[in-house]
Computed example of a mutant assay.
Amino acid sequence: MTGQLELIATAPMGLEAIVARELKDLGYEDLKVENGRVTFKGDLIDICRCNLWLRTTDRILVKMGEFPARTFDELFEGTKALPWADWIPIHGEFPVEGRSHKSQLSSVPASQGIVKKAVVEKLKETYRTDWFAENGPRYVIEVNLLNDIALITLDTTGPGLHKRGYRRLITEAPLKETLAAALILLSRWNVNRPFYDPCCGSGTLPIEAAMIGWNIAPGLRRSFNAENWPIIPEKLWEEAREEAFDAMDDSVPLEITGSDIDEKAIEVALAAAKGAGLAKEIKFKTLPAARIEPQGEYGCLITNPPYGERLGDEKEARKLISQLGRVAASLPTWSFFAITPTKQFESDFHRTADKRRKLFNGRIECQYLQFLGPLPPRRP
């Protein structure tokens, strides 16, 4: 492999700008932001660093090539021209996944088959064999057809980056870790402010806040497909993990609390916090929203409240929002943030949001409503 790689951080709809901001904060420049992805330049070490550090992206892909593909012949020849043997060893496993949108090649299974055949033909030329055992490291190839352009990528991540490795159990309707991190990064919370989630469920928001507060790389507790690739020396992964451990700062006291009316949810949250190594740092309480009493000044309450469509009882969901509104009225220095598909949230909350942002919780279109309190006074 020669020269810099083109890498792609895939982004859930609506979070592309947050992923781009994360990449800039990590020192990457010359970013190309498109629907569902941010493309940037990097080396092999950057595959390791980005998988370890990015909080809001789904996965890190290597861009193998992009070319017009209106026919199966064009798709075959374009794919075969790419340097597959630079990446995939003779025993590598290389399944092909695909998607197609507004393209003449609309059959995804057929397109996957053509790409697989082209990669096999190219590897045959290098390895001088007619058969591949595919019992080695995993290289997931993706063909993405959009407007008759084929984008061919290799997935370095494996299971999506929302799978941090700290969660064994989940509650009903959990929030993805990547979305939880995005909600926190979109708020004005920092480690010097109190944090409260009154509908914490399995604890995702408090745990992600603690990881951000202590600068814990979210991928430290898991493995990635590319860790088994011969092209990436083991020492690069070791170097990236060492950097991540050195960057942690657990000297700052955390004021992070999660509560929920469901005792079983709190048990799940405690287990997850323990899995993340944060059980002693986050307070969890079994408590209805009407009885919460967040402590401190200039805090941030960030939550994913239950709603009728999700948990089946609209009357109770609206009552909860009203209770949260009363809590907000009693905390004049706090800021409040809620992700919700509920159209009447602001009227039930008895306050108009200062900012709104369209986001998707899974496939459900939501608004991220932001009710902003004053910023903390600057420290001398």
Rank of each mutant, 00 (worst) to 15 (best):
Q344V: 13
I282K: 00
N192G: 06
E234N: 11
P89E: 10
L175C: 13
E263F: 12
E22W: 02
A290L: 02
V143K: 01
E97Y: 09
K117I: 04
L145Q: 11
C50I: 07
E172C: 03
L154S: 03
E267L: 13
A226Y: 06
Y368E: 01
G14R: 02
E316T: 15
P109S: 14
Y127M: 04
K176E: 10
Q323S: 14
P374G: 01
I114N: 10
Q367D: 14
E29A: 15
E293D: 08
R193D: 10
L369E: 05
G158M: 02
I266C: 08
A240H: 00
E227F: 07
S103D: 08
C300R: 03
R37N: 07
E263P: 01
E346R: 10
R193L: 14
Q104W: 08
L15N: 03
A279C: 04
L105T: 07
F94L: 05
Q4F: 07
Q323T: 01
S259T: 15
Q344S: 15
E281L: 04
T342L: 12
T333Q: 05
L324D: 01
A180E: 03
R164I: 00
L26K: 06
F132Y: 09
W87A: 01
V96A: 07
L359Y: 02
G113C: 03
G42P: 00
F349R: 09
F371M: 01
P374S: 08
G113A: 13
T340A: 10
R241H: 02
I8Q: 02
E77V: 14
K117L: 06
Q370M: 14
T79Q: 05
P206V: 10
L375F: 07
R310H: 09
I152Y: 10
F345K: 01
G14A: 11
Y368P: 04
E172M: 06
G78M: 13
A240N: 00
L220E: 09
P305L: 09
I212V: 06
E34H: 12
K283I: 14
L220F: 06
G275Q: 10
R188L: 02
L185R: 08
S100M: 08
E263L: 04
L123C: 03
L236G: 06
T303G: 02
I47W: 08
L254Y: 13
F349C: 09
R357I: 11
Q4W: 05
D43L: 08
F94Q: 05
W237F: 07
L205P: 04
K32M: 12
R55D: 00
W53D: 08
D313K: 09
E281Q: 12
D262H: 06
S322P: 03
I302F: 03
C199P: 01
I149W: 12
L169T: 10
A85S: 14
E346C: 12
I212R: 07
L146N: 10
D260K: 04
K343H: 12
F371S: 02
R128A: 15
A226N: 05
T39C: 07
R379P: 07
